[in-house]
Nucleic acid binder design. Structure first.
Lengths: 302, 302
DNA sequence: TTGTAGGCGTTATCAC
DNA sequence: GTGATAACGCCTACAA
């Protein structure tokens, strides 16, 4: 009865009395028993590459909010950007009681017959929820080109993932084969990778991520280059620290929480027996701050 | 037998054969059934105030690493800095199959008879794992005083938590009643709160957190104050973005992963029937970068 | 409308 | 050393 299937079998008064008694006694149903009996855990797992990156913290929050509203619990699996670790994590995960999987830039583990949604991946197998990265790079490029930039460089991700391939393809489509640096997601690595790029005669740089953009700030500082005077830079994601950079970073804002929530909703509908959309793409929006300005010739003073 | 209790009951050969067969068939024990039978879920819950803050991402990672090694799974509960949300989150959590709780700046929910460890709280009831914040503020203050600062302000947390009380007590013990600003953990809020502080004649500011320090950078920039020329600032935590600030932030580095791992270990020993230490305090270390320098009179040029 | 029995997959115990 | 069996707490079907 406490499972909510009373359906007119007993009077409302009785029902209320029982519930009150249950509450009084602090009764709580045993999840394990329920899961065993029903075969459903009401829990989903979210796999992210690196929970230390605030972006993923936000998608987790979004997924969690949505999940909680649906009476689900989300367990997080953090790959920690560590491929070796990944196998073990996923094994632990599959042993776990998840009804379904939310895979951020991850493949379905072998042997998993579970329901799963992919985030920021290419469509094809599983249903996908992703950001409109093409729209994002278009907005960034349009902004820069509108400002008069003609020599634009690209700081791309050294780790390969569909979302970065998409960005690369788009900038290639728009710009031909621009000077490109490949960097890992750490300020220092990005600075090291972006340095040589800044020494070519680019007047602006688009980055696949705000962390990469932070690396460009570091590299520019080392070389005495002014932002946006000598070089304009635009990031991607709009992480919090973008606003405290000097100057504040122009960046493509992505709604990470919405991404997490949309992924959960898709999974929930799959779990409910419906067919979630094969691909759902969420809008992004350029936020113009102060790291972009019209180009000027190198060395030219105001 | 697959539970590992073979204990000499069968031959090693047989054991191996069975395991091989199990692997071949893709057999995996049903967690729910095991949990039901044994009363143990091999899963712990970690409650954090705000998973969007990279600091908590790191403690989660630390806890998760330690947990995974012990064959545990950790489920995250993100309060989202939202008191109203907290009640609901915790209710969902208690319904969940956690064997124990890791409570970061959270109280044991009423009715929970579970095993629990508190992180960054005062000792007393539950076992506590915390950072040596007193040592941290001492290091920060010694550094500033050694540089010659005499008028030092304090940017403290507007949300009250034991760790911030400790810091406040320590700076009060060392400095008397210094000019103090209370700010929430957002760059903009912190900037607004710290602004008036900068207009008093302080030559340096210690912040309870790097995000607060970021707010001070913003406030200083608005007012045309140079860091560290006009004002020195030191943060707390050593979040990644501290290195990309201009100038790089001097801050007290806290090992968030170690904090998470230590908390899990304490919980594990509690779960195993041992008595975890009532209080465990982890060291912190000042990282001197470029946001601190000797004071100079306001307006004085180099 | 209410009561009762069976079984979900494990593990542990007990008799063989 | 091995095999059968009961019980964990819940849900559901069916009988009363």
């Amino acid at each position: 009865m406490l499972s909510g299937k009373a359906a007119g079998r007993i009077s409302a008064r009785t029902e209320e009395a029982v519930k009150a008694a249950a509450r009084e006694l602090g009764y709580r149903p045993n999840v394990a028993a329920r899961a065993l009996r029903t075969g459903v855990a009401r829990s989903v797992a979210l796999v992210v590459p690196d929970i230390t990156n605030p972006f993923f913290g936000r998608v987790l929050r979004g997924a969690q909010r949505a999940a909680q509203q649906a009476g689900y619990t989300v367990v997080l699996v953090d790959i920690g950007n560590d491929r070796a670790w990944e196998a073990q994590s996923l094994r632990a995960l599959l042993a776990g009681p998840a009804d379904g999987l939310l895979l951020f830039e991850a493949e379905l583990p072998p042997g998993a017959t579970e329901h799963a949604i992919q985030i920021e991946m290419h469509p094809g197998g599983l249903p996908v929820v992703r950001l409109d990265v093409e729209g994002g790079v278009d907005a960034a490029l349009d902004h820069l080109i509108g400002l008069g930039h003609e020599r634009i460089g690209h700081v791309s991700s050294a780790i390969s993932a569909p979302t970065f391939e998409r960005r690369r393809e788009r900038v290639t489509a728009r710009l031909g084969a621009p000077p490109t640096a490949y960097a890992e997601f750490t300020f220092e690595r990005a600075a090291a990778a972006a340095g040589p790029l800044l020494e070519q005669d680019v007047t602006a740089v688009v980055c696949d991520d705000d962390i990469l953009a932070g690396g460009v700030y570091l590299a520019a500082r080392e070389r005495g280059l002014a932002i946006p005077g000598d070089i304009s830079v635009v990031g991607f994601d709009d992480l919090d620290f973008a606003r405290v950079l000097a100057p504040p970073l122009t960046t493509v804002a992505a709604d990470a929480e919405a991404l997490g929530a949309a992924a959960f909703e898709a999974l929930a509908s799959d779990l409910a027996g419906d067919r979630p959309p094969a691909e759902q793409v969420l809008p992004v929006a350029l936020t113009v701050r102060e790291s972009t300005a019209p180009p000027r010739a190198r060395g030219q003073t105001l």
